[in-house]
Amino acid sequence: MNDHPRLTAVFARLSFGRTSGKKPARKATDNPKWEKRLQKELMAIMKDPPDGITVSQDTLEGSDLSQICVNMTGPSGTLYEGEAFMLRFKFGPKYPFDSPEVVFTGENIPVHPHIYSNGHICLSILTEDWSPAMSVQSVCLSIASMLSSCKEKKRPPDNSFYVKTCHKNPKKTRWWYHDEDV
């Protein structure tokens, strides 16, 4: 995995602090703090990928960390087994104090009572229960667990209305979390 160009770049950037300034041209401090944190998170995912979760090729090859995509496969033994999904994370400069904007994107949006057909996810940790101690990985795992506990594939009851009227950023929606068990 180390020979991947993007990851090598990440490694190179992060190791400056320790190689006591032999290459002073680019310092680790050139990156905004949120980006450094995100790089560390991505490295952790690459090194030790959680089940069914990989960072997309485009993200690894691109230079913009403000938007990343994560591939997720439906957890085995669940209604979504074998399905492939893609999550899009958008980060602002206030990350991790401000939560990332997370939506399902691509052709296959999981049919789930808490996931709207436009990809918006009704999950409290993405808005008011977010804490800076959470990460891309913990968000992915929460979403995977939300999928796993689903007993019946269906859209939320207000799907068609919501999709027509909502803001394109799900963080602008004040979600009302009706139940915790799906």
Binding site: D158, H167, K172, R174
Partner: peptide, 11 residues
């Protein structure tokens, strides 16, 4: 209210 349902939660 920029969209969604009529249930408002004061921020």
């Amino acid at each position: 209210r920029s969209g969604g349902c009529m249930h408002m939660v004061c921020t």
